[in-house]
Simulated assay, not measured.
Amino acid sequence: MRAEPFLKSSLLLLALLLAPGLALAVGKCERLVATGNPEYPPYLWRDPQNPQKLIGANAELLQRIGQDIGVEIEVIHSGPWSRAQDEVRTGRIDLLAGAFLTLPRLESMDYVHPAFYVTPSVVWVRKGKEFPYLGWDDLRGKLGGTLVGNSFGQQFDAFAKANLTLENVPSLTQAFQKLLLGRTEYVLYERYPGVALVDSLGLQEDLQALEPPISSEGLFLTLSHSSACNDPWLRGQLAKKMTELTASGLPETLLQSNLQRWKAQQLQAVSPPPSE
């Protein structure tokens, strides 16, 4: 008889824990780790004060989402863009802080809708070495460069695989260096991060972007299928907050403020030290 109250209370506790809302709360992760392309200003770049951390518009947006849903989101540097994708694909890192939608990524990641930016990708060339360009077909027969693991949308990726000759390198700096040395004839990369790097390297008189863009793709937050934190509650909360914040215009505000932040950091980096 003495065991009966204990048994009843245990069964009640078990029933409560199995209630849908409480079960989700009990299993909720309190911390997520995100990564992304470290050469992607004003979206993402390495923090000069803490190189193991990524800062930028995407990082600030994720941190705001984390605050709103009660989950700490840390955005770290995990290596070049190709390695960052591998870290998320395998589940060693939970989130990819900005990626275009592609079929291969869909096999290993859940995309959080809606996209928080639409970013154009363009053809970068040396000034004085431009070629007639009106669209994709004008890239045929020329040697181009891009980053390992980079994508420009499913449609262009399929065209490039079938028709273009592209050399893949780990970083945009390296891709631009090969272009300047004449080892490639063009580089494919997003316009705004490309402009930011061209400005920081002082190459405004050497490189330019051709029009029109090869693509304009939505930039999404993705969640690894292999993340231990990937559950219906988290996916729902991320989508809900992303919908609210994009509707409020916050991503564009963060983009503009981080563009100024990046420019200020570059000016500070090249400024001479104060005289004593």
Rank of each mutant, 00 (worst) to 15 (best):
R2G: 04
R2M: 08
R2D: 10
A3F: 12
F6E: 14
L11I: 07
L13D: 03
L14N: 02
A15N: 03
A15Q: 06
L16R: 01
A19D: 03
P20K: 04
L22W: 14
V26Q: 10
K28D: 05
G36S: 12
E39F: 14
Q49K: 13
N50D: 02
L54P: 07
L54C: 09
A57N: 02
A59Y: 00
E60I: 04
L61Y: 04
L62T: 08
R64V: 12
R64D: 01
V71G: 03
I73Y: 09
I76M: 06
G79W: 01
G79Q: 03
S82A: 15
D86G: 11
D86K: 13
V88Y: 10
L95N: 08
T102L: 06
L103Q: 11
P104I: 08
L106T: 09
D110W: 11
Y111H: 06
P114F: 15
P114V: 14
P114I: 12
A115Y: 01
A115T: 11
F116P: 06
F116W: 06
F116M: 14
S121D: 12
V125G: 00
R126N: 00
G128F: 00
K129I: 00
E130L: 01
Y133E: 08
Y133C: 07
D137P: 01
D137R: 07
D137C: 00
D138M: 05
L139Y: 02
G141V: 14
G141C: 14
T146Q: 04
N150E: 15
S151G: 10
F152N: 11
F156K: 11
F156N: 04
D157Q: 13
D157M: 10
A160W: 13
A162K: 15
L166F: 11
L172W: 05
L181F: 04
R183W: 02
T184G: 00
V187W: 01
Y189T: 15
E190W: 02
Q204E: 15
L207Q: 12
L210H: 03
L210E: 04
S224D: 03
H225Y: 09
H225P: 12
C229K: 04
P232C: 07
W233I: 10
W233Y: 07
Q237G: 06
L238E: 02
K241N: 13
E244Y: 05
G249R: 08
L250F: 02
L250V: 09
L255C: 10
Q256V: 05
N258W: 15
L259D: 05
Q260S: 14
R261G: 08
K263Y: 12
K263N: 10
Q266M: 15
L267C: 01
Q268Y: 09
A269Y: 07
S271W: 12
P274G: 11
P274L: 15
E276P: 15
